[in-house]
C-alpha cells in the first residue's frame, strides 16, 4: 500500500506542513492496514472454527456401558467417538500374565497397574497404534497373537493381555480412554 509516489502534476514545493501531513498519512495507513488484517483474521475464525466438532457431536463424546453381561475371558466392543473400545473381562491367568511382564523389556514401558483401574477389567481403544486398523482377539475363538491379547492382521502387531505392544511394527500400547466406574456394573467412557 505505498501511496507515497506523487502521481499528480502537483508542483507545489514540499513545506514543513506537508511533511507533517506525510507522517499522519503514514500512521493512518498503518492503522487502516492493522484494521484490515485484524478484521480479516477475525472474520476467518468462524469459518475455520465451524469445522471443529459440533455441539451434537460433542454431546455424544461420553457413553455409559453396562458391563454386567460380560463373562470372564470374554470381551465387548463399544462404539465411542466413532472408534471401537475393547472392554475385556480378564481371567486370573490373564491378569497374572500381564502383571508378570518385565516392564523394562517392553517397547512402550507401562506396567499393567498403570493401565487398569480394576485388574479384572481392561478397557482400551481398539485401534492399532501402527496405522489405525482394528486388531482381532475380542472373541475367544479369534487369533489373539503370540501374547494372548490381540493381533492386528494389517501388519502383524501382537498385543498382550494388557493391550501392550509386544511384537510387530506398532510403536505404542493400545490407548486407554478416559473412563470411570459409576458402580460395579457400569462404566462411563469419555
Amino acid at each position: 500500500m505505498s501511496a507515497d509516489t506523487d502521481t499528480t502534476n502537483d508542483n507545489t514545493p514540499h513545506s514543513a506542513h506537508d511533511a507533517e501531513g506525510e507522517t499522519r498519512r503514514d500512521f493512518m495507513q498503518l492503522l487502516a492496514s492493522a484494521f484490515g488484517v485484524i478484521g480479516g483474521a477475525l472474520a476467518a475464525w468462524p469459518l475455520i472454527n465451524s469445522l471443529n466438532p459440533a455441539k451434537d457431536t460433542l454431546a455424544l463424546a461420553t457413553v455409559e456401558v453396562d458391563i454386567s453381561g460380560i463373562p470372564k475371558g470374554e470381551a465387548k466392543t463399544i462404539m465411542w467417538q466413532g472408534k471401537p473400545v475393547f472392554v475385556r473381562h480378564r481371567t486370573e491367568e490373564e491378569i497374572k500374565m500381564a502383571e508378570a511382564v518385565e516392564v523394562q523389556s517392553l517397547t512402550d514401558k507401562q506396567s499393567d497397574k498403570e493401565r487398569v483401574q480394576r485388574p479384572e477389567w481392561l478397557i482400551t481403544v481398539g485401534v492399532c497404534t501402527h496405522l489405525g486398523c482394528v486388531p482381532v482377539g475380542q472373541k475367544m475363538t479369534d487369533t489373539r497373537g503370540d501374547y494372548g491379547g490381540w493381533f492386528c492382521p494389517c501388519h502383524g502387531s501382537h498385543y498382550d493381555t494388557s493391550g501392550r505392544i509386544r511384537k510387530g511394527p506398532a510403536p505404542k500400547n493400545l490407548a486407554i480412554p478416559p473412563y470411570e466406574f459409576i458402580n460395579d456394573t457400569t462404566i462411563r467412557i469419555g
Binding site: 475464525w45 468462524p46 469459518l47 472454527n49 465451524s50 471443529n52 459440533a54 455441539k55 451434537d56 457431536t57
Partner: peptide, 9 residues
C-alpha cells in the same frame, strides 16, 4: 444450532 458459529455463517 449445533455447528460452531453456524448461525453466523
Amino acid at each position: 444450532r449445533d455447528v460452531n458459529g453456524g448461525w453466523l455463517l
